[in-house]
Design a protein around this nucleic acid. Structure first.
Length: 267
DNA sequence: AATGGGACCTGCGCGC
DNA sequence: TGCGCGCAGGTCCCAT
C-alpha cells in the first residue's frame, strides 16, 4: 500500500530531518524485519554511522550511511516510519539520532523489511526493477508494452515492468484512462496507452503533492495521514456512483487482488 | 510466458 | 458476548 507517492513523501520528509545526522543507538524490537542479518551484527554495523543520502527506487527506500553502507527499507503492506521524540508502540526497529530524534520503523503485519548492504544495485529487487514512471518519456512508456500480452492491471503492478505502481494507483490510473483493468495489453491502441501515461503521471504527481494516501496504516513521518484519499475515484468505492457516469462502481478480484472499476466507462 | 495459488503476517469486521 | 473465518495487499516462490 505504500506505493511510489507514499515512499516519495517519506523520502522527502526524511531528507529534511535526518540528513547528515548520526545514528547513536539502535533497538531491534522484532528481529523478523531484519533480513539476512542478525540483530547484533546490524546494531554493530549501523550504530555510529551518519546518514549521507536518502533516495528511492520504486517502493524501496535507500538510506546511504557513512562507510558506504546502505539501509534498504521496504514497507511492503503495513509499514510506516515515524520520526519523533518517543518510541512508538508498533515499532519493530528504532533508530536514535544524535539530535535526539527517534526514527521508528513501525509495521503492523511484520511483512516489511530492512536490509544492510554494500551494493544496493546488486539486490535482485533493484536489479530487475522496471523504469521509474516519473522519469520516462511517453514513447518509452508506450514501448514497454511491446510484445506484452497480459491483462493491463497486473502488468502495471508488476515491479519488473514498471517501478512503484501498486494496487491503488493502478486502479486509479486505469479509471482515469477509461481502460478496463482486464483488457489485454495486445488490444490497447497507442492512443489509449498515451492517455494512460498522462493519467498515471498526473495521478502520481498529485498524490505526491497531497503527501500520499492513508488507505491503511501509512502515515507521514510526523504521524499525520496523507491527504490523497478524498481524491481517489474508484478505490474502495464499491456500489457507489461513478463520478463520470453514475454507474455503480464494481469490485472484482483480478489476479488475486481486489479491483474497483466502472463497468460502464472503462472499456 | 502467463497465470494461479500459497506463504509470509496481524487486525478488523462479519456471520452465527 | 464470543468465536472462527475471510479478507486486506507487496513480494517471492512453486506449479501448471
Amino acid at each position: 500500500m505504500p506505493e511510489l507517492p507514499e515512499v516519495e513523501t517519506i523520502k522527502l520528509q526524511l531528507r529534511e530531518n535526518i540528513l547528515n545526522k548520526k545514528i547513536v543507538k539502535i533497538e531491534v524490537k522484532d528481529k523478523r524485519v531484519l533480513k539476512q542479518i542478525k540483530p547484533e551484527e546490524f546494531i554493530l554495523n549501523v550504530e555510529g554511522k551518519t546518514v549521507n543520502d536518502i533516495f528511492r527506487r520504486g517502493k524501496v527506500l535507500i538510506v546511504k550511511l557513512s562507510k558506504d553502507l546502505f539501509l534498504i527499507i521496504h514497507l511492503r503492506i503495513s509499514g510506516w516510519l515515524i520520526l519523533g521524540e518517543k518510541e512508538e508502540k508498533l515499532a519493530r526497529v528504532i533508530f536514535k539520532f544524535s539530535h535526539n530524534k527517534i526514527l521508528n520503523f513501525c509495521d503492523q503485519r511484520v511483512l516489511g523489511e530492512i536490509r544492510l548492504v554494500e551494493n544496493w544495485q546488486n539486490l535482485p529487487i533493484i536489479k530487475e526493477m522496471g523504469p521509474e514512471p516519473l522519469e520516462i518519456k511517453r514513447e518509452e512508456f508506450i514501448g514497454l508494452f511491446k510484445d506484452k500480452k497480459t491483462k493491463i492491471k497486473p502488468l502495471l503492478m508488476d515491479q519488473n515492468f514498471l517501478a512503484g505502481v501498486g494496487n491503488v494507483y493502478a486502479q486509479e490510473s486505469l479509471f482515469c484512462a477509461g481502460i478496463h483493468p482486464e483488457r489485454s495489453t495486445q488490444r490497447l491502441e497507442i492512443k489509449e496507452l498515451s492517455k494512460l501515461y498522462d493519467c498515471l503521471i498526473s495521478i502520481l504527481k498529485e498524490a505526491i503533492e497531497k503527501k500520499g494516501s492513508s488507505v491503511d496504516t501509512y502515515r507521514q513521518i510526523d504521524g499525520q495521514e496523507g491527504n490523497y484519499v478524498p481524491f481517489l475515484k474508484v478505490y474502495q468505492r464499491e456500489n457507489k456512483p461513478c463520478f463520470r457516469c453514475n454507474t455503480p462502481i464494481k469490485r472484482k478480484t483480478i489476479s488475486g487482488r481486489g479491483t474497483y472499476f466502472c463497468p460502464h466507462c472503462q472499456k
